[in-house]
Write a protein that binds this DNA or RNA. Structure first.
Lengths: 343, 343
DNA sequence: GTCTATTAGGAAAACGTTTTCCTGAAATTA
DNA sequence: TAATTTCAGGAAAACGTTTTCCTAATAGAC
């Protein structure tokens, strides 16, 4: 067992209370004593035993991140990796460690969540809303356990959340295509009609942008692949067969964008010559498609930072009012949406 | 404070020692008492306080995973996500939680690692070798702290590691191209000459396969992009200008493969018509390239599982001899390496 | 010089387990 | 029946902090 507070106390000729007070910089200790004790601490290379401290405070100094680790989901949210980076940084700076909990474990066996919080293995939870089961929030609420969401929940909850401003992102994408000369812009999504879904918000932004710029919104130009990529070719065929053929496409996610690109190539429709394309999230392969794909990018690291701050705030101040925050996206223009100046 | 062992003891009319012994299924407790105590435990919804248990055992019941969370590295190792899934599953089943520690935090400030292990915030470490600093292992060794590697370290260490069999993967890729009719196969990598690098191992496999099938290995057909994608066109130009022009390319990573594909398209060289292409890791976008990319895939989930087992073994059996394990890859054939049967 | 207020630091309990050693009762043996 | 062994369970210490309450010494006020 390493160096303990007792060793420091003995060597410094003070009581352990005094050492503890020095650690916490209590005002009732004289500067001289403080200095001496601090020196001894350094000399002995003393680190307070976190586990003992946990024991007293009954907190683990761990923040849990509930996220899906299912193989199939691995690349649905490519940015979760960066989110983790943001969380880890803030957590560490506040003395917390980041622990990962698999969403599917919990959905399959909600008792695991009960155990997790009964045993206080984490002090608070950040819940990434991919595949998270609404029912589980009931468990958390019953135990009055602190948590925040990444992503805007589409169910009632008393918890704070942080999200990216997908409506704004949709606006930016659409606005950009109009800027590039498009006069008829279609939207292809997956879950357009699902309340508070990422796709719905992006579609909303698409509509808002069109209206704001004085274009009519025609619902026939809004398509939904309904969960399966295989529907995309048919949707595109419909769009290309319309009286006024679209000259710009907003794809609500990368997979749609890539499938669309493939289809257009097969049909010998040039991008960006005849059709401009834009999507979201700046997926790492976006620069490597042919042509490279324009995206509306999100600072997901910041998403992690904000969510970590939110939960840590909540821990130190349990009565805190709930907060929502929406982060702004930015535009990354690549060839797929850039009209050649020449020609 | 929730239900404690005292509450259970009182209600069951036994001492806390007895309850503790029931929890650990000690043989000196009669079946009748055991049964009664277990019932009371269930009735009161008692969960042993892990923090108190940690306090006694001075272990945190957390496994740390050191991995790079730097933005730039996020997609270098797309499969780390799945690795985490494997680790989490094994860890949880053994009563551990998975904690994430950012490699760059530690390299920037090695004292963080000292603190981490002095405070016993994790019981053991799994180190993902991307960007991990060799010097840090000295800290671990000095403290006799248990750790294992994911990936084969290219420096001396007393620790176990698990890795994917990259040499075997290189063999499989090369063998497959020969099977498909290639007679001159080139290899493009990044770090061919770096000892124990992933790329070097794959190149080794490439050579072995060629030799095993009776082909000569010509070093002129082995190219290295030396850290920057911009070198790729020049390398390809060299290859295409050779007396015997290659009809198959083994690309040691996805970025090389995608850049290569782009180049070949610009030069109007048909894939798979005139050139077969194969790469590794089954990056999620591999099916979405034009044409879809063949890859040699790795069960990285299993990599996580094995690394977690290794560290947990080590924890329960500190004297354990170090172990190395190499996981076998499997072939996923897509259009980029499939000679049309017709024509 | 006495009384009070202030200051610096100490003593000890508490947190919930695990674990070692002990004890009393029952069972076995002689 | 007496001595011994076995068995089931209990008492208490220990783990390293934090924190509350207390005390002795000093300073200040009159």
């Amino acid at each position: 067992m390493g160096v303990t507070i007792k060793d420091v106390a003995r060597k410094a000729g003070v009581s352990i209370s005094t050492v503890s007070k020095v650690i916490h910089d209590a005002p009732t200790i004289s500067d001289a004593t403080k200095k001496r004790v601090l020196e001894i601490m350094k000399e002995l290379n003393y680190h307070p035993n976190i586990i003992a401290r946990s024991f007293v405070s009954q907190s683990s100094y761990h923040i849990g991140l509930i996220m899906s680790l299912k193989k199939e989901d691995a690349f649905l949210n490519p940015y979760i990796y960066e989110i983790m980076g943001g969380i880890e940084e803030v957590a560490r700076k506040n003395g917390y460690l980041l622990s990962i909990i698999n969403t599917s474990t919990l959905s399959e066996n909600p008792a695991e969540l009960e155990k997790l919080i009964a045993q206080k293995r984490v002090d608070g939870l950040i819940i990434h809303l991919g595949g998270f089961d609404e029912k589980l929030t009931a468990v958390l609420n019953r135990a009055d356990f602190p948590y925040v969401f990444i992503g805007r929940p589409n169910f009632a909850t008393g918890a704070s959340w942080v999200d990216i401003n997908n409506a704004k992102a949709g606006e930016i994408a659409t606005h950009h295509l109009v800027d590039q000369g498009c006069r008829c812009i279609a939207f292809i999504g997956d879950g357009v009609a699902i309340r508070h879904s990422i796709c719905a918000a992006r579609a909303e932004g698409y509509k808002n942008a069109l209206q704001a710029m004085g274009y009519a919104v025609d619902e026939r130009y809004i398509k939904d692949m309904k969960g399966t990529c295989e529907n995309i070719p048919a949707l595109l065929e419909e769009l290309l067969g319309m009286d006024e053929r679209p000259d710009g496409l907003v794809c609500s996610d990368n997979f749609i964008a890539f499938e669309t690109l493939k289809y257009l190539q097969r049909k010998n429709i040039e991008v960006p010559g005849e059709m401009l394309l834009i999507t979201f999230d700046n997926y790492p392969f976006a620069p490597y498609t042919m042509p490279p794909m324009s995206t509306v990018d999100i600072d997901v690291f910041e998403l992690g930072v904000q969510s970590a701050r939110a939960i840590i705030n909540k821990l130190s101040n349990p009565g805190m009012t709930i907060q929502y925050s929406l982060l702004s996206p930015s535009l990354i223009i690549r060839e797929s949406s850039a009209r050649k100046i020449t020609g």
